[in-house]
Design a protein around this nucleic acid. Structure first.
Lengths: 173, 173
DNA sequence: AACAACTAGTTTCATATTGCAATCATATGG
DNA sequence: CCATATGATTGCAATATGAAACTAGTTGTT
């Protein structure tokens, strides 16, 4: 494991592995957007991540054991990226970061609705979501990537997002 | 507010303000170590933060409104750094990051005991801790910095840390 | 008074990282 | 055949990081 180990404090060690601008953004996109291919992560990044940063981060997250990679049977060049158990267990961390961010930063309604639902759902929702994520990332990564296997929690979060986004678009028109 | 705003997602915005190697480490030291002066933060950093990084981060956290700074009446050169309400509300985030780190990273027992207690204490402990932090950082920053005003939760966390550290030292001897 | 230690930084300089945008060699779809 | 898609890689300029020395004072000790 390629980390400095400046101290044995869990906060420090977490910052050593995830304390940069992009790592949690990538895990977010894999987790909440079910973005499982390089181009999907690159082209559909809300924040416009650079390709070399994406490549370097994916490589690092792989070597840290937070994501896994396997061939996609539908295309010989395509790789499917999946979350491993440690990354799945970041759900409560995302929930708390999302809750904090909603309160203290200039979030937009569409992009923060999922954070709101996660916060309101609490531990029971997080557990359900993590169980779903195990299905689509660990048990059947190919099925999870191509949509043959899905997450009910993810569908609810996504539906809420699309509903708010649709309402925003209607408001604009 | 000096942030990019690449998207209105709360995760992204939080990474824009706190997604670096050192910001949360500094807030951790102010919060859990009650380190309220520059030299204290510099010289007692478990991770050996560099002085220019510390200075730059403190300046940024100040401009973001996450910490405040005031003169120390005991010494004309000394500045007291304190947490503001947004930083205090990071307690649940620290709790979740700490819980995750304890599980997935090579933590040491002494430096992770506080994370364990925070996780076990749950929301009631976090609320109590945040109320304490408001007293020593917002209501009376000078008293909080010089030890005239203290936090019972912080004292418990610190006592547990010292106890484990003492046990470790005895084990070594 | 002289000196040492302390104060919050600042500076120097080498190295690493970031980010934009173009490019690559190949695979698939129309 | 040609256009698009695939997971990257590359070139280059700007910025960030980090170790360690330095600065202009202020306070404490002898």
């Amino acid at each position: 494991m390629d980390i400095e180990l400046r101290s044995g404090c869990p906060i420090n060690l977490t910052m050593e592995v995830l304390g940069d601008r992009w790592s949690l953004i990538i895990i977010r996109d894999i987790m909440f957007g079910n973005r499982r291919h390089f181009r999907d992560l690159l082209n559909n990044s809300e924040e416009g991540i650079a390709s070399n940063i994406l490549a370097a981060r994916l490589k690092r997250l792989l070597s840290l054991g937070f994501i896994s990679k396997r061939d996609d049977p539908s295309h010989s060049q395509k790789a499917i990226y999946s979350l491993t158990e440690p990354a799945i267990q970041l759900v409560p961390v995302f929930a708390m970061i999302g809750a904090w961010g909603r309160r203290h930063l200039p979030v937009t309604e569409d992009l923060s609705i999922r954070a709101q639902l996660l916060e309101e759902g609490g531990q029971p929702l997080w557990d359900e979501f993590m169980e779903d994520l195990r299905q689509i990332h660990i048990v059947d990564p190919v099925g999870g990537a191509n949509g043959m296997v899905t997450s009910a929690v993810l569908a609810r979060l996504t539906a809420a997002f699309l509903k708010v986004r649709g309402k925003m678009a209607a408001g604009v028109a």
